[in-house]
């Protein structure tokens, strides 16, 4: 088991850096996770991260990219509901990278 330090707190993660327990998530750990990837979280990032947390809360799964893109488009508008926009925010893959910062497990079917 690996771990991440943020603001004096320790968060357990799996070997790929996903949180072991999504209930331990907070904004501090998201910021630190992003820093490890050289990524500074903006309002636009948080919009997607918060959306993912709400999606997980409701459906108990992290959505596939295709589903995420469509749902974001419906909720935040067509200019954000496309892979170009989401990949610019999360170059390592919107589902994988954003889910990690959101404290969710890796999306089902993601390798």
């Amino acid at each position: 088991m690996s771990s991440i330090e943020a603001n004096g707190k320790t968060y357990e993660t799996d070997e790929e850096g996903y949180l072991a327990d999504l209930n331990t998530w907070d904004k501090d750990v998201a910021v630190v996770m992003a820093k490890i990837d050289d990524c500074e979280l903006t309002e636009n990032h948080w919009e997607v991260i918060n959306f993912l947390r709400e999606y997980y809360e409701e459906y108990q799964i992290a959505p596939a990219v295709r589903v995420l893109t469509k749902a974001i488009g419906k909720k935040l508008g067509k200019d954000k509901g496309n892979s170009k926009y989401l990949y610019e925010l999360f170059p390592y893959g919107p589902a994988k990278q954003a889910c990690k910062y959101a404290g969710l497990p890796k999306p089902t079917g993601c390798v």
């Binding site: 409701e58 459906y59 108990q60 799964i61 959505p63 596939a64 589903v67 469509k70 749902a71």
Partner: peptide
């Protein structure tokens, strides 16, 4: 709850 996501897929 995951069954209700099937429509999204």
């Amino acid at each position: 709850p995951t069954y209700t996501a099937l429509g999204d897929y």
